[in-house]
Amino acid sequence: MTSSSALPEFFIGLMSGTSLDGVDSVVAAFDHQHCNIIQQQFTPYSSQLRQQLLALHTPGDNELETSCLISNQLAHAYAQNIDALLARAAIQPAAIRAIGCHGQTIRHRPELGFTLQLGNAALLAELSHIDVVADFRSRDIAAAGHGAPLVPAFHQAVFAHPTQHRAVLNIGGIANLTNLPAAGERVTGFDTGPGNMLMDAWIKKHRAQDYDANGSWAATGQVISSLLQQMLSAPFFSMSPPKSTGRDMFNLPWLEQLLQTQPAYRPEDVQRTLLELTAVSIVMSMTQYCGNVDALYVCGGGAYNTALVQRLQQLLPATAIQPSDALGLAANAVEAAAFAWLAKQTLYGLPGNLPAVTGARGPRILGAVYAA
């Protein structure tokens, strides 16, 4: 950490998550329990790159070469994002200590001992002229952990309160929950199931839109109880933490297979049911594993889904629900900031995982460093 007399150290965090919408980045500086966002940038993926990434989530021909070529494309996309970020921040690359790059997950199979995030970190270091820290998840998996979620360690560092029981809910493609009891009690966290991913896929198929803005389309539909119960019967929902998931488990083909056993439904009713799945699975997890939470802070793209947040509040009437902005960190910057923080932890030789969250054998220094 920097002292008050020292110049601040700037880190860049890069996040491209399961929503496959693009690259979020921040320039961040850290001081004790505070994360100061200097600037942030979002660069959408081209439709071609998004389709290529989606295709890689299922087995296909010549996957090895395709993965390597797309890793190079991602490195160029990340570098362009960083150029725009630094220009907006009026900061030179030499002022950045390191980039924390999550990469783009295309396989996450901790039960088989591996996870795979694309993004050529060596090429990114070459293009950006900044040291890059990448491959954060593998070390935790090597220690018998899930390698995910990793953001709870960051949530603990910047959002924990000495007397208030808080929870932080990140709703990206997958939703994950961090339980932050009052000081002295164990922090826990885990994936709760689909966040925006299934809703995004369904509206893309039926309305050619990338996402359901404010949940407006879902709000026109009705919950299909039989479909909801069938989706909630997926084994993941009955698993105890530590647990993590992704597109390997929840995806459009999975949904369409379930729909084959159901009558024909209006698309908007399916969309409403998918929103209900996200909300109910989050609340089930909170009720079972977090106890009485005083305040729930929401971040990620789902924080802007008005219908989803309203439904969460209906299901949790005794819990105050606010965006993470209320704690000084914008909802759309939290995950990128987490990987800036993880890069700092790596360079300082400090652990980046929480064993109680991931199931690893103990704290581990995460990530591999690619010098510029």
Rank of each mutant, 00 (worst) to 15 (best):
L69R: 15
V309C: 15
A336T: 11
R186Y: 02
H165T: 09
A307E: 14
A337E: 09
T261K: 08
F136P: 14
L259M: 13
P93H: 06
I224T: 06
A183N: 09
T105N: 07
P59R: 10
A157H: 15
T220R: 11
G100F: 01
R139D: 12
A87G: 12
D212I: 06
T163K: 12
A343T: 06
Q92N: 12
A208D: 15
F154D: 14
P323W: 10
Q40V: 00
R361Y: 00
R50V: 00
R272I: 07
A153S: 15
T188N: 09
L255D: 01
V293N: 01
G362Q: 10
A125T: 09
R361P: 00
I224Y: 04
G13F: 05
V309G: 11
A336K: 08
Y297P: 05
L350K: 15
E9G: 00
A89K: 02
Y265N: 03
T43I: 02
P152C: 14
L274Q: 06
A75G: 13
A55F: 01
Q230W: 04
N176T: 08
I99R: 07
K243C: 02
L274I: 07
Y289E: 05
F159R: 08
T58I: 08
M231H: 04
A28E: 05
T66A: 13
H102G: 08
A201T: 04
Q314T: 12
P162R: 08
N214R: 13
L350C: 06
K243G: 01
Y348I: 01
A98N: 02
S233E: 12
Q313A: 14
G362K: 04
R247C: 00
T245L: 02
F30Y: 10
